[in-house]
Structures are given as C-alpha cells and as structure tokens.
Design a protein around this nucleic acid. Structure first.
Ligand SMILES: Nc1ncnc2c1ncn2[C@H]1C[C@H](O)[C@@H](COP(=O)(O)OP(=O)(O)OP(=O)(O)O)O1
Ligand SMILES: Nc1ncnc2c1ncn2[C@H]1C[C@H](O)[C@@H](COP(=O)(O)OP(=O)(O)OP(=O)(O)O)O1
Ligand SMILES: [Mg+2]
Ligand SMILES: [Mg+2]
Ligand SMILES: [Mg+2]
Ligand SMILES: [Mg+2]
Lengths: 647, 647
DNA sequence: TCCCACAGC
DNA sequence: TACTGCTGTGGGA
DNA sequence: TTGCAAACC
DNA sequence: TACTGGTTTGCAA
C-alpha cells in the first residue's frame, strides 16, 4: 500500500467507511454493486440525523463490549484455555454423535417476494428498478433495484438517491398473503407438515417424497420450483441439505431462481461449512458477526471450530454450543410440534411529539387495534408491554403483569395509560403495545361442556316459533350425531336482515388426526353475528358480534366478549373466514368488498362455502439452541354458513 | 415594446405565464415578491402532474364559458342593452335608498394566524421563514416566508423550492382553538354579539361601544388590537367601515399589525370602492374576477357600476344585484340571527387506488368519524353525500335523501356503500362523507316534557337508597325552583368508579336574554357518562355514554344515542367540555391527557368548574345575496359537575 | 333533489 | 413522492 | 418478571 | 421531510 493509498483510506477522509449501516449481509443480486458508493451515499444521507446519532451511540456501545471481551481474552491464562479447550473437545464429540444425515430438508424462499408479486399484478413494472414501500421505509426491492444497492430495510429517500428512477409501490399484504397461500398449496404436496417460516419461505422434509418417488433432492427441488412458478408465475430458490440450518444457507446460494444441493455426506458438509462466512448462518447477525471477527478473529464457520475454546471462554454455554454445532455443519432434522403464539403486538411511528393529548389518543388507537386483533384469535393475556421510541430513537419498554387475563381495549388502555404516564413528559416517535402470557387451556382437556353446537341452536330455533331459518342443502352430521331438522327450514335470502348463525365445516387435520370429520359450530341464540366485513382490508372477512353478547366458547373469566370457539380440544377462531375465489367468480364478482357488501346487504346465496384459515401457532426452531423463529402454517377447512332472518 | 420583448413574452417561450395558479389574490406581505419567478417555479413543479392536467382541463372549461359569454355580449342588440340599462338604473336607485351609514362595523383578522401561534409556542421560529403544514399542503406561512412567495394552500414541496430554508410545522388545531378563544374573550367586550367567521377573524358592531365610550372607530380598533396583543401576544389587523363588506376589505389594507378606517361618508365610500379591484371583494374569487375582466373588461368595483347593463345581461338577477351593490359600496349592516349548521362532513386524501377493500375500509373509517362528530353535536340528518376525487383530480358527489334521520355509523356506512358501489370500479385519491338536512326541532316549541333535569335526578337519587352522590358546594336553582337536597349528599371522591351524572351551569346569553339564569341538566338515571376523554386530540373532552342508553334530550325517533340536551328552546351539546387552565394549574398539571386520565382513574376533585363551549350555529351572511358564509361563535358558560360512585 | 363549480379560511 | 379539510352558496338540470 | 438488544422477514 | 412492523429469543438484573 502506497502512502497516498494509506492517506486516502484513512477514515478521517472517508468518514462513511466507519458508519455501520444495517446493510451488512450480502444480499443476493448485489454482486456488481459499487459498495463504496452505496456506503458513501447512505452515510451522506444519514449524517447529522437523529437516527444517525443513535446509530453512533449503539455502535460505540458495541465497540465497548468488544473491547471488554478482548480484555477478557487477553486475561485468559494457559490454564483457562486448557480448561475451555477440553470442554470444547468433549462437546465436539458429543455433537458429532448427534449428526443425522438420514433426512433430506429443502428450504424454499421466494425471490424478491413482495416486489415479484407487485410486478405480477402490474406488468409495466417488469424490468424496471422497483421497491415496495415508501419514502420512509422499503420492505424489499427487485433485483434491478438491487444493482443500485437498494434493498429491504432501507429508507426510500436514500434508495432514491442511489437510484433516481426507482419506482415505489406501496405495500399490500393482501396480495402477498394470496400468493403465499398459493405457494403453500404446492409445498403441501411435498410435505404435508411443511414449516412455513414467513409469507415467502418454508422448510420441507422431503425425505419421504424422495423415497416414495425415487427422486433426488435436486429433482424434487427442480419440480417444486417449476410447480410454484406454474401456479403463481413467481420464481423461488431452494436449498437442499441434511438439516434445516444448512438447507437455509443453500437456498440463498443460487438466488434468484436457482437451487443448490449439499449432499448428505459428512465430508461434503464439513468442506462446505468450513469456508462459509459466519454471517450467512441464520442467527448470526450483524453484531454477533462483528464480535466474532473483532474479538476472536473468526469470519468463517470453520474458524468457529478452530477457536472453540475462546467461544466457551467468552460466551454462554448455550451460545458456544450453538457456534460449535454451526462449525460442524449440524442443524435440526426433526419436525417440531406446532407451538402456540406467545405474544401479539401493534406499534406505530409518527412524527416525534411530546403532546400528551396526541400520545394518549395514539394509545387509544393502539389499544383498540390490539384488542381487535386479540379477539380475532380469541386470545387474552396477562402481561402488557408498552413500547416507546424517543425522538432520539432510544427504545424503551415498560410492562405490567396482571392478576387476570385481558383483551378488552378499555382494560388495555387503562393499564397502558398508567405505564405511559409514568414516563411523561417525553418526546416520542413511536408507541407500541404488546400482550403476552396468554391464557392457556388446560392441556388435553375434554371438550368444553359449555360448547354450543349448531345442532343445539338449530333444534332450539327450528322447533320453536320461527320458520325463517334456513341453511345450505347439505346434510349435517355433527359429533353429536347427524342433524336432520334442516329440511324443515325453508331456504331464504341473505339480505340486510340476515344474521349469521353458525358454521358447519369439513375439516382436515390441524395438528391431530381429525381430518374428514365434520364439525359444527353454532353461535349462541343471543349471540348472533352482527356484521361481516373485511375490517382490516387484509382480505379476510371477520365477524363482529353484538357487544355484550355471551361467549361462544370457554375463555378466561375476565374476558367477556370472545370470538373463538372450541371443537373438542381444538381451539378455533371464529374469524378469518375467507370466501373462495370460485364463489366470487361464479357471481362475476371479484372483490372482497363486493362480497362483504353482499353479505351485509342484498345478494342471495344458498350454498355458501368458505374457508377457515385457522391458526397454526409458533413453533420452536432449534436453529440455535433456545433460539426460536415463528411459523405460521395454513390448512383449509371448507365450511357452510347458516343464516336466519333478523327478528 | 420591441420585437424581442414581444418574442420573449410570448407564452410559447414562457409557458408558465399561462398556467393559472390558485395563488391569484394578492396576499398581504407579498409585495416585494418576484412574481415571475414564483409563477415559473410553481409551473415547473406542477407541470406534467395529474394535478396540473386537471387544472388545465378546468382552465379550458372556464375559457370556454368566457367565450360563450362573450358571444352573448356580442349578440346584444341596442334594444337589449337599453332594457338592461333601465333595469340597472332602477336597481341602483333602489339600492342607494338602502344605504345605511349609521352603523360602525369592525372586521378583525389575526396576522398569519396558525404561524403566529406556532411562533408564540416556539420562539426559536421567530424571524425565520416558516409554514404550517407538511410537504403536501400548507395551511399558512409567516410573513418571512411570504417574501419568497410561499403562502396558504401551496403544497409544501413547491414552497420548499421557493424557499429552501423554509421550516415546516405540523398543524395543531388545539393550539389555534385556544388562542382563538382568547381573542374572542376580547372581542366580546366590544360586541357581545360579535360574529366569528373563523378561528382568526370576526365582525364586531362597534356602534354602541363608540357611542357609550365616546370613541372613534379608529380608537376602538387601536384599543382592541392592543388588548388582543396583550392577552395573546399575537398581532391582528382591523378594518372599520359602515358595513361588513367594506370593513373586511379594510382589514386587509394595512396588514399585518395595522388598521384602516373608512369614514362613514358616502363620498369617501364611493371614492374608496371605485378604484378597488373587484378581486378584493369577498365573494368575488379567481374565476368570477377572470370572467368580469375577460368578458366585460371590468377590473375595479367602479367599473361594476359603469358596466351594470352588461351585468344584468350576463348574470342572474341576484348576482347582478350583488355586483351592483358592491359597486355602490353597500353591504350588510345588521347582525343576523345565529343560524343552525347545515351540514357536517369529513373527507380524507390518500394515495390513489382502485383497491376496493381499501376503499371500503376508508368508507368505514369515514362513517365512524362522521357519526362520532354528529353525536358530539347531537345531530342527525337525512341526506348523505358521498364525495369522490378520482386519481385525475376530478371531483364527484353522489347523494341520497332518506326517509329517516340517521347518525349511526352503521346507517351511514350502509348507504355510503351503496353510493360507492355504483361508482366502481374507479381509482380514487379522496373520499368524503357529508350529512345534511338535519333534524330540526319544531320552532319555538315549549321545553320538552321528556327533559330530565338534575333536580329530577338528584331528588330520585338522594331521597333513595344511595348516599354516595355528591356535588359542588353551590346552591342549585333550576328553572323549576331552587333545589335544596344537595346538602344531604356527602362529598366523595372521583375515581375509577365515578360516573358523571349531571351539570349545573350559570349561562349567559346565547341568542336570547337568558344571561345569568342558572340552568341544570341531569343525565337520566340509566344514562350515566361512561368515559371522559379527549377522543380526537383536539383538546376538547367529550363524554361517552353507555351504548343503548336512552336519550337525554328529545331527538328524532330514528336516532337512539344522543349527546345533546335541551334547555327550554335552546339546544345544547353535552360535549365540548373543556376544563379551564386555572384548574389545571391549581394541580400543577398541564395537559388534557393528565386531566382525562385523572377523571377516568384516580384524582379526587370536589369543586370542579368547567366551561361548556356551546354551539353557535351557522348563520346567513348577506355579503352577497343568498351567499352564505359560516359562522361559529363561542360563549362561555360556567358549570359544575356532579358525580356519583358507580354502583 | 342532485350535482357541479366557486368561494373563503 | 407529495396539490387539504370543512362549510356554505348559486345555478342548471 | 422486567428491560434491552439482537435477529429474521 | 422522511430510518418499519410483527414476533421470537438470549441474557442480565
Ligand atoms: N426488514 C424488513 N421489513 C419489513 N418487511 C420485510 C423486511 N425484509 C423482508 N421483508 C418482507 C419483504 C420481502 O419480500 C419478504 C421476504 O423477505 P426475504 O425473503 O428476506 O427477501 P425477498 O424475498 O424480498 O428477496 P430474496 O429472498 O430474493 O432475497 O419479507
Ligand atoms: N386554504 C386553506 N386551507 C386550510 N387552512 C387555511 C387555508 N387558508 C387559511 N387557513 C387557516 C390558516 C390561517 O392561519 C387561518 C386564517 O386564515 P387567513 O386569515 O386567511 O390567513 P392568515 O391569518 O394565516 O394570514 P393573514 O390573515 O395575515 O393574511 O386559517
Ligand atoms: Mg425471499
Ligand atoms: Mg424469506
Ligand atoms: Mg388572518
Ligand atoms: Mg382570516
């Protein structure tokens, strides 16, 4: 390096080099990018802002932490090192013994998902640099835009500096959910228990399908990707390997529209992992990567093995174990139980203010929004967390754990207000509310005796004075026996005066072997559905019940209005009713709005089928010991709906 | 003009000269402005946009109208002209006979109101160019900014081009309402029946005060402006003249922080009005001005008189009459009855979309918002108007008139949905809802027998089994006689379990001579106030009552939940309760949020005084025959609040 | 009664 | 990238 | 149980 | 002018 090079590289003259952007992991499609320029532009646009100052503070504290860990390293005696070396060696043997090369895992991830969907819906975007989001924040960018350094989590106004012709498309989750569902229908054919990790990616255990159809992982991946493309018009990438951790790494290698297969051979795995940058591993992010590099000098997974004694010296046992297993190329190979969600939250950013009336109103909005969401899944919880982000981007949380479970917006607001009040005065740019510690039904309990079935209801209704009750022309059978009174209920029209009274559905398995058994739900007599609408504009119709009506299903005594119900020991949300495309097409109608309207108002409909998109809850992903990732799966259940004239 | 000048002035080379911006009336403070430059920048920033294209379309249609009117002019026979000349001459005599120089009117208008208030609240803004609003739209700009051509109704991003250092301050109506109320307290001292035309301006009939205090209009104006400044720290400008139309023109002449007095002498008035540009007259806007200029060649009010035959030939009788009276310097001199509001609306702009689920959700939001607002004033109406603005800025309205009066959001939504559905598919950038045709009580009816008074309630309460009812230590007297039971109700605490039960107030005149008489309201026993909060963040606490509770006052049978009450024949809103600063200061608390919190939750308070800011409804302003402008006046009524423990 | 255009803050 | 929200009036259909 | 930081999409 | 929103996890107090 010449003197002038040294001069020109000094961070005093190129200050942007020392600004740690979030955009550290090499996203696919960003190979030919002038990283120096991107870094400089990001720096220039950020410099001087509150955000920038906060980043600098955070950076300084990481540097401090690194310094501290370095000093710890320096103080290690040979004795210490020998001790940790022994621990590591022992652990390596133990871990190696758990190596399982018998499974074939496939990780599939859609390419530039939101952007690809938007392009599908507006072909004029094709080939042009485009991003999904707004001037404040991008959710993702297509590959044309990535050439300019534009990428997810980048504020739009910076992206525009990098790429002046960038087209901005606002987010529309409804679209993405729709295409996500299409992909999942494909995934399901290869692994009925596929683990959906987000709207655009999933893990599939293709061990069985490979055996059954005598196909290699490569062939399955190829076929699956083609099927996904044929069904959706979207490309995806896949990785195939002996465990999920490796499969995930592999799916990124030949992105976009590519795949990579890592053979189920120990040698191949070890070779592959050895030279792999640690940053590629799921669970090792920007900070951990920086620590590994700057404290121990580790930048590849192979070095995790070589430096394993330092790992046990510097990190917690479970973290060190995780790093070691990564170095060995190990990962989870089983399909874990589908877990229940653990928290639900909502948050909103606004221009920073200390105006307390404004902040209070925001809290009201958040409470109502969270309450609505909770009710849609029939949840209530006993710890409430208030999240605040100050005008200087400092994040704070304040929590209370209550004696009883809450889900009503009044209750949420009441406690949230107290939490906020204790923080005032303060200038905020974000507030959020989170509920956790959900009410959990006693495990494996028998079906709730309070459960009202549709037959209960219809018997009461139809044998009573009313003759304006009707239902679809399907014969109902419930787990209480076949229901036969329905013939006496003449067909009627769904109109303004229609109330939804109940469902029948033919469900397939959700987590047990209940597939095919018909299930019935009836709302209570005094609990008719008041209103059907796509309240959140997310394409899912939800049912609003009269306020003050009784619970349909069992629930915590503190929660009064609920919108879920119980079927044996399966908890089912009354919301999330989605009408199938076929129904819409039959009527030459294409929008949920029309549908909601019709249900509310005027159209007649005799044999109405719907899909209950039920919850599949979060699930442990032992990617990293005790590290969990969320999973949302989807199964379809066809249902009939029953109506009666309003009295 | 030389050849080259002619060339360089051709609109082909200076296309911006032909772009008709909205910013046509010479705002005060914009004298030294390089209008050419402003016009060019506005043009450059707008050119090519959907907005621009729409403006061009509108402009073309005005040009067309002007062409048509010109042809009408050209076709006038001498006979015709003689006919209209005679009509005009007769009318001039009639109008002249109505001239009234006996009154002294003062028009007062705050200087750069929103901006001035913001500067008062943040002194660091002083002296810097600043505007209130955001990148999309400015509400106003201070005088420093106006030097750059920045002004109200200009989009912020254009303003920033004109003035790169412009500081943007978001709107905060709560502040403006507060200072507006302070100014009105001053106005009231000079004319108890002052006509508030907006938050920042009012007409005062100072005839009496001038006589009583032997002051000239000039002296009153001076004193009033000084008082306003001393009370608020804000400057204002005033105009004094024989009628409101002239006073309003005068108030603008020496803006900012100035005043102008036009003597009550016919000669002075005629001289003044003759050379006055028509555009200065309230009611003659951009389009009318253009028509007068380009069709008849009129640009001053004097020319309105000279060309009066053409006015009667081209315009409707009432419009021509108006123009003529303007030419004579006539205007309204009486103080009209305070009228009822005629409509209430809400609208929202968003990024243009044809997504029907999104549009439907917007409609839901609008319905709820409008319903809330209606209930705050106890209104319901029978015509609902849906307003749409297409992606190309075309505005459409669609209305229904119903058999019954509505105010519930479900009802509004139901009908709004139908209106919208008939327009689909369409790409929209704005939707709005308006309710009009309000329910009007039978005029001059005796007080409603269903009216529940506080004494009714307290007698029932206090003589009953409960002893947890309390009230302030004022002796109550109602129009039913003095109430004396209150002593038996021991004081209690306002807490979580507190319900607001009623008011007592000492009201001054609202539109009749009721000042000083104490009035009492009691909520019905089954209609307690459930919740007090600043729901809209506008600094006004409003009271939410239990759903399904009975009406307090009379109302249309179709409307169930109301929040107004009747006092004799005066309709009074139960909302808009505002706690006075003194109360807050007593408690070392400064925010409405704290207050709302406290009322909801925990603070004790025995002698709670509040101000009911009651409605003063819209009122005809015969500025121009049949032309109306809105008026919202404010009177203060001190009230006590009564509480009881929740059972 | 409906719809549009105009006007003002 | 971005051109308001609210209310009232007049006039033609 | 709380609060914060890290991680991922 | 403008730096997200939803969920989970680890860890230390
Ligand atoms: N930081 C983020 N904030 C909000 N949404 C995000 C964020 N990152 C990703 N998403 C959304 C948008 C993405 O299209 C979608 C899937 O994420 P991801 O698979 O990581 O990227 P991608 O599918 O857009 O591109 P690719 O997978 O081809 O790299 O999740
Ligand atoms: N077009 C508009 N849109 C929204 N709000 C407006 C608009 N015009 C004015 N306002 C608000 C902001 C103003 O401060 C307030 C009073 O208006 P106005 O008296 O006309 O101007 P101003 O008080 O800001 O300046 P000045 O009176 O000194 O010319 O009303
Ligand atoms: Mg992806
Ligand atoms: Mg992904
Ligand atoms: Mg003003
Ligand atoms: Mg004004």
């Amino acid at each position: 390096m010449t003197k002038s090079e040294s001069w020109s590289n000094s961070s005093e003259n190129r200050p942007w080099q020392s600004y740690n952007t979030v955009y550290t992991n090499a996203k696919p499609g960003m190979d030919g990018v002038d990283k120096e320029k991107v870094q400089r532009v990001v720096y220039e646009m950020s410099k001087g802002s509150k955000y920038f100052e906060n980043q600098e503070r955070k950076d300084a504290s990481i540097k401090e932490k690194i310094e501290y860990m370095r000093s710890q390293c320096a103080n290690l005696t040979p004795n210490h090192l020998a001790h940790f070396h022994k621990i590591a060696d022992t652990r390596i043997v133990e871990l190696e013994a758990t190596r399982d090369l018998s499974k074939i895992w496939l990780h599939v991830d859609m390419d530039a998902f939101f952007a690809a969907v938007e392009t599908l819906c507006d072909q004029s975007l094709k080939g042009k640099p485009m991003a999904v989001g707004n001037m404040s924040m991008l959710s993702t960018a297509n590959y044309e835009a990535r050439k300019f350094g534009v990428r997810a989590a980048m504020p739009g106004f910076i992206a525009r500096k990098l790429c002046p012709d960038l087209i901005f498309v606002p987010v529309d989750f409804k679209k993405y959910t729709h295409y996500s569902n299409l992909t999942r229908e494909v995934f399901q054919k290869y692994d009925a228990n596929f683990m959906a990790m987000s709207l655009d990616e999933a893990y599939l255990d293709i061990t069985n399908i490979c055996a059954e159809r005598s196909m290699t992982g490569e062939q399955v991946a190829q076929e699956l990707r083609e099927t996904v493309f044929n069904v959706t018009g979207l490309t995806c990438s896949a990785g195939v390997a002996a465990n999920r951790l490796l499969a995930k790494v592999c799916s990124d290698i030949n992105k976009p529209n590519g795949q990579f297969v890592l053979p189920n051979e120990r040698g191949a795995v070890v070779t592959f992992i050895s030279s792999l940058p640690t940053r590629k591993i799921g669970g090792i992010g920007k900070v951990t990567d920086q620590i590994l590099k700057e404290v121990i000098g580790i930048s590849t997974c192979g070095e995790l093995l070589q430096q394993s004694s330092f790992l046990y010296a510097l990190f917690s046992r479970s973290s060190a174990d995780f790093f070691l297993s990564v170095g060995l190329g190990l990962g989870e190979t089983d399909t874990p139980e589908v877990g229940m969600r653990k928290s639900m939250s909502t948050e909103r950013t606004f221009t920073a203010t200390k105006n307390e009336a404004f902040l209070y109103q925001k809290l009201v909005d958040l409470s109502e929004s969270l309450s609505t969401d909770l009710k849609e899944e029939g949840l209530s919880g006993r710890t409430l967390t208030l999240k605040l982000k100050t005008a200087s981007f400092e994040v704070r949380t304040r929590a209370v754990t209550l004696p009883s479970y809450i889900c009503e917006h009044e209750d949420i607001l009441k406690h949230a207000s107290k939490l906020l009040k204790a923080e005032l005065p303060v200038s905020l740019r974000l507030m959020g509310l989170r509920i956790s510690h959900f009410y959990e039904e006693s495990n494996g309990a028998p079906s709730d005796p309070k459960q009202k079935t549709l037959s209960d209801f219809l018997v009461r209704k139809c044998s009573g004075e009313r003759d304006d009750c009707f239902m679809s022309d399907h014969v109902l059978s419930t787990n209480h026996g076949t229901f036969e009174n329905h013939e006496s209920c003449g067909p009627s029209e769904i109109g303004l005066d229609t109330q939804l009274l109940g469902f029948k559905w033919q469900g397939n398995s959700l987590n047990q072997n209940r597939g095919g058994k018909e299930q019935v739900l009836g709302c209570q007599e005094n609990n008719p559905v008041e209103h059907i609408s796509d309240r959140n504009g997310k394409g899912r119709l939800s049912l609003k019940q009269h306020e003050g009506s009784d619970e349909v299903g069992a629930g915590p005594s503190t929660s009064e209005k609920r919108s879920f119900f119980w079927m044996d020991d399966f908890k089912c949300s009354i919301c999330g009713v989605e009408l199938p495309q076929s129904f819409l097409e039959e009527r030459q109608e294409h929008s949920d709005f029309h549908l909601a309207e019709r249900l509310q108002e005027e159209e007649s409909c005799e044999n109405l089928k719907s899909i209950v998109q039920s919850q599949r809850f979060t699930q442990k992903d032992q990617q990293r010991k005790k590290h969990k990732s969320s999973q949302t799966g989807t199964k379809h259940v066809s249902i009939d709906m029953f109506f009666a004239k309003k009295s």
